[in-house]
């Protein structure tokens, strides 16, 4: 197994030099439909980018693609130095990104702690990171031993976020992270994003939340019809 081999073949985390991601004419087909129809995109280290656009524009597919899920049918895509057209590279990449998807990726029959420990263990996360992540999202108290099926939507989301935090990804891919959260939870997400970029990670957020996002994300990307464009500067909008 050339499991540990990085795309640069030195076995170490590549320097997170710019660009974190470089996509050129990337086409991604889902069930015969080109969900991404030729994406050109450059992302730089430490950036927070906000993906906005109508439902079905391709935001979720783009996040999944950047996470190393799904195949590039045409064009090229490189994320953290991994060539997404190659299976081994995608596998390498997946361990270094954190994806918060619509699905919570939690097992209903396991408790909050069992879920978090399972995912963190698969990731070889530091146990200390797991404890602090659980504390950060208020999951170290009564909720700890509650099976996930008994949680509210917001509590599930917090559990997923705790899993993500324990992983310390280099690239954060958040699909509607504020959805279903109360004011306190939303504030937690905001702090999370600032902390992550502070630590040198790159964050991409797909969101319909036009109130929250502008303050968080200096860069705005418009997604429509399976392509991505940089939004015009705020002042230029008529």
């Amino acid at each position: 197994m050339s499991e540990a081999a990085s795309p640069s073949d030195d076995g170490t985390v590549p320097p997170v030099a710019s660009p974190v991601a470089r996509l050129r004419g990337a086409v991604c087909v889902l069930g015969g439909f080109p969900a991404l129809a030729g994406v050109d995109l450059d992302l730089h280290a430490g950036e927070v980018a906000w993906l906005r656009g109508p439902n079905g524009a391709g935001k979720t597919t783009l996040l999944r693609l950047l996470a190393g899920l799904g195949t590039v049918r045409q064009g090229s895509a490189e994320v953290l130095g991994a060539d997404l057209t190659r299976v081994a590279d995608r596998r390498w990449l997946r361990r270094r990104v954190g994806l918060l998807a619509h699905a919570t990726f939690l097992y209903d029959d396991l408790t909050v702690e069992e879920n978090i420990r399972f995912w963190a263990d698969l990731h070889r996360s530091d146990p200390g990171d797991v404890d602090s992540a659980m504390a950060r999202f208020g999951l170290d108290g009564r909720l700890r031993t509650v099976p996930v099926r008994g949680l509210s939507a917001g509590q599930r989301r917090r559990t997923s976020l705790a899993v993500l935090v324990a992983r310390r990804p280099l690239l954060w891919l958040l699909d509607e992270p504020h959805a279903g959260l109360d004011a306190e939870g939303r504030a937690m997400v905001d702090r999370l994003i600032t902390d992550a970029t502070g630590a040198g990670a790159t964050v991409i957020v797909a969101s319909h939340d036009a109130d929250h996002m502008p303050a968080l994300a200096p860069r705005v990307l418009d997604v429509a019809g399976g392509v991505v464009r940089d939004a015009p500067a705020p002042g230029a909008e008529s």
Binding site: D222, A224, G225, G226, V227, R229, A231, P232
Partner: peptide, 12 residues
């Protein structure tokens, strides 16, 4: 698919 995106004015 790309035309569908162009129909939506960017920024909207």
């Amino acid at each position: 698919r790309r035309a569908e995106g162009a129909a939506n004015e960017p920024g909207g």
